[in-house]
């Protein structure tokens, strides 16, 4: 139709959107009569759009890409994050320590006399105030033994919220006041590695 002939790099510049409006119009009209060139450009366009989609999917799903992105931005977010973590750790630690210290000062300490074998005898433990934790002082260092362990049950059900503190050759079991109630039977059991009960002591919790 016209005598227009594209330069060797026209297709490349076309794909990159670098042609002027007049060049663009002339080239696109030229393509109408050159289906082979059009096919090459169709494939190129597919490649461009396909890769764009591939990369956008990678950004969303590929852990390596996410990790790379985070690494590239590490200089930006690491210092404030470290300061934040330090402050958070500091205040959390202070809070926990203060809280723990305060609770331990107020706690009700009960020395436990260990009797080997299963004790049918139920002694009574008088629970204190509502904010007073219960500390059971057991004169055995079972925690240093890999073969034996202590476990606490309330009404026959394993109590998992027990903090264990080792004091010299004693083991202190700390039960928060909220986790126990008047009328419950507290069992302290020592078990060996075969889960056999070495000794068991039962206490009735009273007001």
């Amino acid at each position: 139709m016209t005598s227009y002939q594209p330069a060797p790099d026209t297709a490349e510049r076309y794909l990159q959107g670098k042609l002027s409006d007049s060049e663009l119009a002339a080239y696109e009209l030229w393509l109408a009569d050159h289906p082979d060139e059009l096919e090459v450009l169709e494939l190129d366009l597919l490649m461009q759009e396909g890769l764009k989609r591939l990369h956008s999917n990678q950004v969303l799903t590929d852990p390596a890409v996410i990790a790379n992105s985070l690494r590239e931005k590490a200089w930006y977010w690491t210092p404030p994050l470290m300061v934040l973590a330090f402050l958070l750790g500091f205040f959390l630690h202070q809070g926990l320590v203060n809280n723990l210290e305060q609770r331990m000062v107020n706690a009700l300490y009960v020395p436990v006399e260990v009797m080997r074998g299963n004790s049918e005898l139920q002694a009574e433990i008088h629970l204190g105030k509502d904010d007073q934790d219960l500390v059971l002082m057991i004169p055995v260092d079972v925690q240093s033994s890999s073969k034996e362990a202590l476990q606490v049950k309330l009404d026959g059900v394993m109590h998992s919220g027990v903090r264990v503190i080792l004091v010299h050759d004693q083991t202190w079991l700390v039960l928060s006041r909220e986790s126990v109630a008047v009328g419950q039977v507290l069992s302290i059991e020592q078990v060996d590695q075969n889960k056999n009960v070495v000794f068991s002591m039962n206490y009735l919790l009273v007001e």
Binding site: L46, M47, E49, G50, L51, R53, L54
Partner: peptide, 13 residues
Amino acid sequence: AWEDGLQQVKQVI
């Protein structure tokens, strides 16, 4: 066909 072509790019790569 166009959508299919976009999917095929992944395999080409």
